[in-house]
Design a protein around this nucleic acid. Structure first.
Length: 433
RNA sequence: GACAUUGUAGCUCAGUUGGUUAGAGCAUCGGUUUGUGGUUCCGAGGGUCGUGGGUUCGAGACCCAUCAUUGUCCCCA
């Protein structure tokens, strides 16, 4: 048998896991700061919980299990974390509303993997959702969380695009079309960040959208002053679109209060997002300088999804931060150091005479909180130093016979190669320099 | 699903119009006389050239098929 990893899935070696853990720990601390509490749901769900929520295209990407196919108990791996969370809400009416949860788990999509773009079949989503309120404060907070996490991780040139499904529905009406065209139109104009208008226009023509409608859309999208205020005039007779514009105005006001740098977010009428369940504001983060990397985060308001599952209405909004996208971006932007272990000090295994004192030293260092390891084999010094070097362990401590006689220890700083003889009690001071 | 790309050592690749026993760098392991890595020097292991068939005296190179890979599109985190 040939050992291989499932296509689109990956092993994460320690040097990758250390970074992934750091990224998720930044997220966890920001999520908690905004008042979110953790939740976990099963990797596996009944198929009927998942189907019919995302739209036709996405439904085909659900990983169905070869188990009780065709029956009510057919199962699948979850496609995202939003729908399982909505199921939890439908099943637990006793929870205090508004309910704010975060959830960090892998999800599966039967997609064609494209690693360079950060696209996989198994990947980790880091979600924050709020159920039970229509307040735009929540939507603004979700954007603030996205901003804060990316900032703390060291991203500078990211852009959170903001739009509203209500405005997009209004756009269809504005063009003189019925609501059923909204999806097709959105999918086409969504490409405007990558493709020129001519291509989008061609696509719209192929979808049999009337010329007059295309012209109206073009005039609006390519118009010089594509601001919320100007859209208000264009959409003056479309109440739903006006409602969407009001919501965005409110969000932008809140983002200012939260001191989100305005260079990191923008209103983008061409942002559509593929999932069917969004009903209001929608968000997506891209790196404008690296357009080939897919969106780092995405989210929006889905006021009708819970109703779809439980029959009881409950407004909701959420975001998903893509751990793998963020990791891929950081990797390609050289934002990751080459750390391979958390160990700060390696104590060399010198001889049988120094065995016990070395282990006492090991215990002593761990007791004061210094991540320390002892080389378990009595190998040649060369081998032990080369181990420290490979793992980029910053310090090696040698407690050999000579040091033992003097009652001191040798401390070598690996990067510079400098080695000094110090008192045991001075270790903490020396390595924190 | 559509179009394109590439399959030679663990990795990155070379391999000249087909011609002995298929090479390099990196990585791995060992040695460099035994208390010091990352830098020197020496050495070793590791490939049925994706798979199956065909052309030929002869195929890693050419032809067909097949599988896989990678990229773009679609869609998304």
């Amino acid at each position: 048998m040939n050992p291989r990893v499932f296509k689109g899935a990956r092993d994460f070696l320690p040097e990758q896991m250390l970074h992934r853990e750091r990224i998720t720990s930044v997220m966890r601390s920001v999520f908690k700061k905004y008042g979110f509490a953790p939740l976990e749901t099963p990797a596996i769900e009944y198929l009927d919980t998942l189907t019919g929520k995302y739209g036709e295209d996405a439904d085909r990407l659900i990983y169905r299990l070869d188990y009780k196919i065709g029956s009510k108990d057919a199962a699948a791996l979850h496609y995202d974390l939003t729908v399982p969370f909505s199921r939890v809400m439908a099943m637990n009416p006793h929870l205090a509303i508004p309910f704010k949860r975060y959830q960090i788990q892998p999800v599966w999509r039967a997609d064609r993997p494209q690693p360079h773009q950060g696209r996989f079949r198994e990947f980790t989503q880091c979600d924050c959702d709020v159920m039970g309120t229509k307040s735009m404060v929540v939507d603004a907070e979700l954007i603030a969380i996205t901003y804060e996490v990316l900032k703390v991780l060291g991203f500078e040139n990211f852009l959170i695009k903001i739009n509203n499904r209500k405005i997009l529905n209004g756009l269809t009406q504005y063009a003189g079309l019925t609501a059923e065209f909204t999806g097709e139109i959105c999918r086409s104009i969504d490409k405007l960040d990558k493709a020129p208008w001519e291509e989008v226009e061609k696509e719209l023509e192929e979808k049999n959208i009337p010329k007059t409608a295309i012209e109206k859309i073009k005039a609006l999208l390519l118009g010089k002053n594509l601001s919320i205020e100007n859209l208000r005039i264009a959409f003056a007779n479309i109440p739903l679109a006006l409602e969407g514009l009001d919501e965005l105005t409110e969000i932008f006001k809140l983002l200012e209060i939260f001191e989100i740098d305005s260079k990191n977010y923008t209103f983008d009428l061409s942002l559509a997002r593929g999932l069917d369940y969004y009903t209001g504001p929608i968000f997506e983060t891209k790196l404008p300088l690296h357009p080939h990397i897919g969106s780092l985060t995405g989210g929006g308001r889905y006021d009708e999804l819970i109703g779809l599952i439980s029959g009881k209405e409950m407004p909701a909004a959420g975001i998903s931060l893509g751990l793998d996208r963020i990791y891929t971006a950081m990797e390609q932007l050289n934002m990751l150091s080459d750390i391979k272990t958390s160990t700060k000090v390696l104590i060399a295994n010198f001889s049988s005479e120094t065995y016990v004192p070395s282990l006492q030293l090991l215990h002593q260092l761990r007791a004061i909180g210094i991540p320390t390891e002892f080389f378990p084999e009595q190998a040649k010094m060369k081998k032990q130093f080369s181990y420290a070097d490979k793992l980029s362990i910053p310090y090696v401590l040698i407690l050999g016979e000579e040091e033992l006689k003097m009652g001191k220890i040798s401390l070598k700083e690996m990067k510079s190669g400098d080695q000094i003889l110090i008192e045991i009690n001075d270790i903490e001071k020396e390595i924190s320099k």
